[in-house]
Nucleic acid binder design. Structure first.
Lengths: 111, 111
DNA sequence: ATAATATATAAGTGTTTTATTATATAAGTC
DNA sequence: GACTTATATAATAAAACACTTATATATTAT
């Protein structure tokens, strides 16, 4: 599946940030809420929110409110999804970050 | 083949620019010299030089002087190459740009 | 209703990026 | 050697970016 070059550049620029790229790789594994990312990246909540908004603005993630939490997930409906998936495939698993979160008892699991 | 996430972010940021991404896709097809890119992108020579330098600095392109011209080509030896190739595969051919250059008689072909 | 928690938005700031102009270097031509 | 062409580098200015702090909104609990 092909993608317009200009759009591809926009997407790649978005992914060209360590925090956002890590987020995307993690979201490829499971959904996360904002506060989990805040823990993982040891940065401020607004910074995380702003990264997520950029990802949402181009449509590669979507959000779902579950009670007080808002969970983010990959938007598999996006035109970018196949391209994105291909890129994520080449990246190392970030499971260690998830495990660290679980070990600290900070993993939010609600349905 | 896997790549460190931080390095991947660095590469993706580099590719996240329309000019550089187009250059890379074109270089995947054949070598080009600086003055050809200047024609193609309708921008200044220093701007093109600076983009090429960034690509060279991370090692994904290499240069070869041929007389007065310096030709750039993909560095297939780069650790990034397989990852890069995967990305380029998803991008539309830029042959129209090359054909336009040839039609104007501005294609440089020397060996 | 009030307080606490989770998230988003707004405003401001320092940093990074990308272009431009000016200049330097290197090769080719007369 | 002087002139032209191709390319690189330096300095700088404008725009974009990614934080921060402060504040607003939404949900849940008391």
């Amino acid at each position: 599946m092909q993608i317009e070059l200009e759009q591809a550049a926009t997407l790649l620029k978005l992914l060209g940030d360590k925090t956002r790229l890590t987020m995307m790789k993690m979201l490829d594994h499971s959904d996360f809420c904002v506060c989990e990312f805040v823990e993982i990246f040891k940065t401020s909540q607004p910074a995380i929110s702003q990264h997520l908004r950029k990802l949402k603005d181009v449509g590669i993630v979507k959000e779902t409110r579950k009670g007080q939490w808002i969970f983010y997930s990959l938007n598999t409906e996006s035109d970018y999804y196949p391209f994105l998936k291909e890129i994520l495939k080449s990246l190392p698993s970030q499971d260690d970050r998830l495990q660290q979160l679980e070990k600290q008892g900070l993993r939010i699991t609600c349905q």
